[in-house]
Design a protein around this nucleic acid. Structure first.
Length: 614
DNA sequence: GTAGGGTTAG
């Protein structure tokens, strides 16, 4: 600011070309933009106007546009741009990047198109900003056009252009295209690697994300930074691979990023997702900065997922004690926990707390609340309905498909199938497959064949590849003893070449993943596993476990049915984990199919008798 | 003079 004073009263005519005196005027604008100080920026602008310098110099106007963009005042940036008689290449480039920086991505793409219509060939700066906008929009069609322009102009392997193009493809889910841009890049930096690692992770290709991270380390040309670590930690969390996560935690510490808030959040979340709650809590405990709502929510959600609602509640209280406001993520986790444990009072209390905040207008929290009323107890249907009816008027939530599905589920669980059917007919939208699946599940529990068939028919139309629907339907017939219908379904499946997906279970033990199928005795330790399973079986039977053979679609003696259930893959996997791992380690079984009713019950007994969380 | 990436639910 002081520097500006000396320019005061400079009334000489500005030169036609952008020469050095104007360069000196630009410096204060630049630092102002970097600091995001809009007030100071406006004062500098006013002085430049008074001095007559700004209007005459495209150079200074470009700097002003940059300054306003950095200070998030896009309106002023646009006003300056539109007042320019002849915006030059830099003006356009600055505008496009300013729009992209301020999340006006569609406008950034439109500006890029206007620039080309104005007859200017884009610079690599303009191209990379436009690609960034296309990435943020996950818009592969305009993105691919940008890619073509880049190829034509020879910019397509420039660091910034290529990274943003790769990011654009990966955010659009086109990982193969992203690789085609990324692989031949002559120089890759941490940003480029983040685009790939995060692209894989967000598209569910978790192994690929981890492999990409290893590739980066193997090449040894780029050091991982906090962004890379966040992305790969997120992937290892979803992989539920605590061992990989722990290895990365070591690298994080070595690289000195363990004080970085976002990295700590990612670390907490990784451990929580891997069900390693002690380490998740430890990351927060040693945090000198105190908790963030993100990391505490990850911890809370981890406790909920491992059935430790008391610990979640304790964490929730501690969070408030620290003066951190819970957000919609925190509340939905807590409410989910109450639903799972049928903690009606706590659930209602949370509902009351949420009503006092703007979080109540969050559509997702809305579904979670409905889920809670649906799960917990038949008596709460009316409370759930009351809330559902108030969503729109009192809380400004327009009920969506997911909310209607919750109500179907709510009626179904309460056994009020007629009302569920009536509700479906009166809904303003048609139920989605999820809604019909809820209904089918309820019909199975209540042995309602007619309505179950309607639901199944609708699911088959909406999701022709859904093989589970046949299994559920034959479960209904089986529970009613209608073996002819069971046979008919089998024939239908044969004729339409639908195969029941075989169920598999994966479990990690000693840094190795083991896979099991049903009645699968191919594992080298089969004898020990079998013995353990028998032992578990005796024990839980003593503790009150009764096999539930109702839905098994085979017309066999009970003893034979029991035998089939007894060797479902998840039980073999758990028995194997119990004999191969120390008792303190969490056992995480990954499955390709939904767990069956009986395994769910048996595993709960096993967990209880081992003092584990299910 | 102008430019890019990351963490929490379903």
């Amino acid at each position: 600011m002081e520097g500006m004073l000396e320019y005061r009263g400079t009334h000489s005519r500005p030169p036609d070309t952008d020469t050095s005196p104007w360069l000196r005027l630009a410096a204060p604008l630049q630092s102002c933009g970097r600091a995001g100080d809009l007030r100071l920026g406006r004062r500098l602008h006013a002085r430049l106007v008074l001095s007559g310098a700004a209007a005459a110099s495209a150079f200074l106007t470009n700097h002003l546009i940059t300054m306003y963009s950095h200070c998030a005042d896009v309106t002023s940036a646009l006003r300056l741009f539109h007042a320019m008689p002849r915006p030059n290449l830099v003006s356009w480039t600055t505008l496009i990047s300013g729009l992209a920086q301020n999340s006006m991505h569609a406008d950034a793409l439109a500006a890029f198109a206007s620039m080309r219509r104005a007859g200017l060939a884009p610079t690599q700066f303009a191209l990379s900003s436009a690609a960034r906008a296309a990435a943020a929009l996950a818009a592969p069609r305009p993105g691919a056009q940008l890619h073509c322009i880049g190829v034509r102009l020879g910019f397509d392997s420039e660091l910034f252009v290529a990274s943003n193009l790769a990011d654009m493809y990966s955010k659009s889910g086109l990982l193969a295209e992203a690789c085609r841009v990324f692989d031949p890049m002559p120089h890759k930096d941490a940003v480029a690697w983040t685009a790939m690692i995060d692209g894989y992770a967000k598209n569910g290709s978790l192994e690929e994300a981890a492999r990409s991270f290893r590739d980066m380390k193997r090449e040894g040309l780029v050091r991982a930074d906090q962004h890379v670590f966040c992305s790969v930690l997120s992937a290892s969390g979803w992989l539920k691979d605590g061992w990989l996560g722990r290895t990365i935690h070591c690298s994080v510490m070595k690289a000195g990023f363990d004080r970085e808030a976002a990295v700590r959040n990612a670390l907490t979340d990784m451990y929580a997702k891997a069900a390693d709650m002690e380490d998740a809590a430890r990351v927060l405990k040693v945090d000198p900065e105190g908790w963030t709502v993100v990391s505490a929510t990850s911890l809370i959600d981890g406790y909920i997922e491992t059935d430790r609602v008391e610990d979640a509640l304790r964490t929730f209280i501690e969070l408030r004690r620290q003066g951190v406001e819970p957000n919609e993520f925190t509340f939905s986790s807590m409410i989910k926990g109450c639903a799972m444990q049928a903690l009606l009072e706590q659930g209602a209390q949370l509902h009351a707390q949420v009503i006092k905040t703007s979080i109540i207008s969050d559509s997702f929290v809305g579904s979670t609340l409905l889920d809670m009323y649906a799960c917990s107890h038949a008596g709460l249907v009316d409370q759930g309905l009351k809330y559902f009816n108030s969503m729109k008027d009192a809380h400004g939530i327009e009920p969506k498909e997911e909310h209607y599905s919750c109500i179907i589920d709510m009626y179904g669980r309460a056994g009020r199938l007629d009302e569920a059917e009536k509700f479906i007919h009166e809904m303003p939208v048609k139920p989605n497959a999820y809604g019909w699946c809820s209904l089918l599940g309820a019909c199975r529990m209540r042995g309602n064949k007619e309505l179950g068939e309607v639901a199944a028919q609708n699911i088959m139309e909406l999701e022709p590849d859904n093989t589970g629907v046949h299994v559920s339907l034959s479960g209904i017939y089986a529970s009613l003893g209608q073996w002819e219908d069971v046979k008919a379904i089998r024939k239908l499946m044969r004729d339409s070449r639908i195969k029941k997906l075989p169920g598999f279970s994966w479990v990690d033990a000693n840094n190795k993943t083991h896979v099991f199928a049903s009645e699968d005795w191919s594992h080298p330790q089969q004898e020990k596993i079998y013995k353990k399973l028998e032992e578990l079986y005796e024990r839980i039977k003593e503790e009150g476990y009764v096999p539930d053979t109702r839905f098994l679609p085979c017309n066999l003696e009970d003893a034979a049915k029991e035998r089939i259930l007894r060797y479902h893959s998840e039980r073999i996997a758990v028995a194997f984990a119990l004999i191969s791992m120390p008792a303190t380690k969490p056992i995480i079984v990954k499955k390709n199919l939904r767990i069956c009713v009986d395994c769910h019950s048996a595993l709960k007994f096993i967990a209880k008798s081992h003092h584990l969380s299910p």
